[in-house]
Every structure is written in structure tokens, then in C-alpha cells.
Amino acid sequence: MKPLRIFGYCILILFFFYELFPFYWMFNTAFKTRAELRLSPHVTFFPHNPTIENFVVVLRRQVTAFVTPPIMNSIIISLVSTLITLILSVPASYSLARFKIKRSDNISFWILSQRMMPPIALAIPYFIMIGALNLLDTQLALILVYTAFNLPFAVWMLKAYWADFPWVLEEAALTDGCNRLQSFFNVILPLSWGSIATVTFFTFIFSWYEFLFALILTRSRATTITISLASSILETGVEWGWISALSVICTIPTILLSIFLYKRIISGLTLGAIKG
């Protein structure tokens, strides 16, 4: 093996550990007992007495410490906001990419400009607006905010994909007897699942892990899983076991989603690579 190649592998292995160590540590901590975490003078790399106690406690707390279980709120808010983002962004990006619309570049830039401000700059205006709508501490508030925040990303991502789309396929579908809607659903959409899966994935992840808006716009009824994570910092100290167990639970949907969408995401990331 050439030295350069060996060096390359070394870098890769280092990077691998660097990336995965936090995950490993999260799992390691989640299965440790409270005693091991608090009392052991040494850092332990494996739980001495593996236990699921932390999981039981955090799941129980989901019901006892909050009005609605935050995990349920997170699932509902993330799914609905992702769904609305897709329903709006797919036709919007298709229209921007496909049709000659007056000032379409300006419209696109305006959409993107929504993401140019740091989220904290939007926090107060959102708080006032959501308050005025009497929606503070509701799932709908976060659904609206997340959708507004995700839409620009989704529209631009799909617009970039459709910029390279072989539109001759749509023309073929039109001459084959389709109307625009039929050609969209029969030809364009089936060829675009990769990009749509990618957008779905990133949109869902954003909504699932979002903290700032959830903190500002919710109190008890609509708190999300990230807020419940933070609530494990008690007056008596930081409950690392709880935090780790909840973090493990928190990563499960994203891991499942990435496994489910993996192939499509890979094809979606090679945007526009449709071959006949």
C-alpha cells in the first residue's frame, strides 16, 4: 500500500472517531446508572451496570412534567410543517423554474432573503405576531414558523434541481396526451423523488431539532422534545443520564428517516442526473 493511501486512511479513521465519538458517548451515558455517573471518580467507557432506568424516567417525565408529551408535539409539529413545506414548495419551485414569470428572479431572491437574517432577529417579531394571533404555546404557532423558515430552503433546493431537468420529457408527455397536471404527476414527480426526499429530510431535521423558536413561542402545552431536553437541567444539578437517554430517543426518528430515504437522498444530491 502506498504511503499516501495509508495517510489517507489514517485521516479517515480519525475523522470517523471525531464524528462518531459524541454518539458513542451519548449511548454510553444513557445506559449508566445515576450512581455511576455521579459517584464514580473515573470516567468509564462502558456502563458497569447497564440499565434502562434513564429511559423509563424520561419517558415518564414526558407525561408527568408536561401538559402534552413534548415528543408527541415534536412529531406532530415536524410532520405537519414538513408536509406543508412540501405542498407549497414543490409547485412554487416548479413554476419558478419552468415558466417565464415576470420578475421571477426577484421573486426567487425575495424568497431566499427570508433566510438571510439570523433566526434570533426574527424571534421578537414572531413572538409579537404569534401573540397577536393568540397562538402562543400552540402547535400551530411552531408549524407556521417552521414552515415559513423551511420554505425558502425547499424552494431553492428544488428550483436548482428543476433548472437542469430535461423538460423535453414534459413536452413528450404533453404531446402524448397529458395535460400539465397529468404530466407533472406521471412524469416529472416520479423522476424528482430524489430531490423531494432530500428536501423532506432536511426540512424534517430542522423542525425536529429546532430550539430557539420553540423556547420563545411555547410554555407548557406545545413544548417540543428539544425543550424537554433542556428541562433536564434541574436546580439540583444536570441529569446527564436523562439528557443522554432523551437524546438517544430524539435521534431515532432522524436515523430511521435517513435509512428510509438514504438511496433517494444520494440520488437527490446528484441533482439533475437523470439519464434515459
Binding site: 420529457l169 413528450a172 408527455a173 396526451g177 412524469v187 434515459g276
Partner: peptide
């Protein structure tokens, strides 16, 4: 009249077969 209703069939230069 939309292409759909014209009863014309077209063969494109790069064939435009539906890859899926």
C-alpha cells in the same frame, strides 16, 4: 388548442423516453 388535444405524435431528437 393544447398539444394534448391535437392528435399529433412527436419523436424527439434524444427520444425523450420516460426513464422510470
Amino acid at each position: 388548442m393544447t398539444p394534448q388535444k391535437r392528435e399529433v405524435a412527436m419523436v424527439f431528437q434524444d427520444y425523450a423516453l420516460y426513464p422510470h
